[in-house]
Amino acid sequence: MSLQVGVVGAGGFGQAIARAAARQEHDVVLWSRRERSVPESIRASTNIDDMKDRDVIFLAAPARHATSIADQLGKVVDGRHLIVHVSRGLIGAELKTITTVLREHTAARRLGALAGPLVPNALAEGRPSGAILGTMFPEVTEMVREAIGGMELRIYDTTDVLGVQLASATVGFLTVVLAYAQATGVEPSTLAVLATRGMVEISRIGQALGASEETFMGLAGLGDLIAAVAGDERAESLVGRALARGAELASAVAEAGAYVEGVEVAEHMIEQAHRLGLQTPISSVFVEISNRRMTPEDALHALMERRVGPE
């Protein structure tokens, strides 16, 4: 049975989801602020009212636009709608998740967060891939699998909605760190230590905020990080490399050509961690580097001289 699929946001991810859903012969409407040319199988729209009759809506917009888009969606959706977002960001100093924003601004309750090593190109072209969907509602999982899943895309599910979003956002930041380290020529063993301890660091913060450790060690966390390090050419990696070449943070982000959620999340994440009494050696040092308050050599020294204990 054909689904009425809505996609909000016509960036890389939005277009990829729309193509994947259209490939499954669903009725797809792709909404964006500006008019877009899209394949025949997809209907483009600039009228948010077109989301009213959709069974499931994918929100594919950067976190910084999530609140204003949720406000617009709030005028047209109700309890019948299922909404799933693919943002890798968190909002503000309190690290508010996008599902929280959707909960606050719309009447929809059946929400989900799609994350993991899924990249727009693979999704758009139907290359084999996998993702993790965080939702409390089994029917959201069923509908997302029906909308975009299939032989090319394995969609696993978890009820740790918070964990999926925290892992996704913090891995984005860790990707920048690792790309920077790779570009500065660190040894593979150093990179392995940085990646593993970085995962431990963000996982502890996630757990303190209420997420599950398993989520960080699954597709949303470790799986996503492996894809990034393996070189899936995501924007975070480009930022890391640009920083390694000596670019300033703002120009590194501009050079990446896409909005990088992880960088904004980092400072707020560190604040929250310190508030919770947690240490953030890798994240803190990298924020210092990216703001040019510390040299790479000093950073490495600062990390290496820390007291070492059981893993």
């Binding site: 309890g79 719309t106 089994p138 029917e139």
Partner: peptide
């Protein structure tokens, strides 16, 4: 709704337009 519009609470228990019991 948070936007202040009247909504039908029955929509929350509908599945493709039909109210159904779904314990999960």
């Amino acid at each position: 709704s948070p936007a202040g519009h009247n909504i039908d609470p029955g929509g929350y228990v509908e599945r493709r337009g039909t109210p159904v019991v779904d314990l999960s």
